[in-house]
Design a protein around this nucleic acid. Sequence first.
DNA 1: GCAGTGACTAGTA
DNA 2: ATACTAGCCACTG
Length: 99
Amino acid sequence: MTGGFREQVWAIVSAIPHGKVLSYGDVAAILGRPRMARQVGWALAALSPDTLVPWQRVVLRTGEIAFRGDPVRGPEQRRRLESEGVAFDGDRIPKGYFS
DNA sequence: GCAGTGACTAGTA
DNA sequence: ATACTAGCCACTG
């Protein structure tokens, strides 16, 4: 019935309201698996480039963008969030944007 | 079936 | 404040 952990993650992420964000750990906690933050990120990494899932709304617990080694998706995530009205404080998103 | 991997997090120094 | 470590567990070959 679960059909795989990834699909559950995609469902939760798809339900994040416009202009709000969640941390990887938050998504994992919603699934009842608070220790699976890394797997949440991994599930998002498996998404197609043309996915409709709003993956940009999932960030680190600190409010920073998770990508470190990717020169493309990191800036792209920030651009997407800013276009949704999410204001950055330096490289971090203020806690008020977390649902 | 086993070992390696990783878009995390919390703890320690 | 930054840097490093350990634990976590689904997924891949």
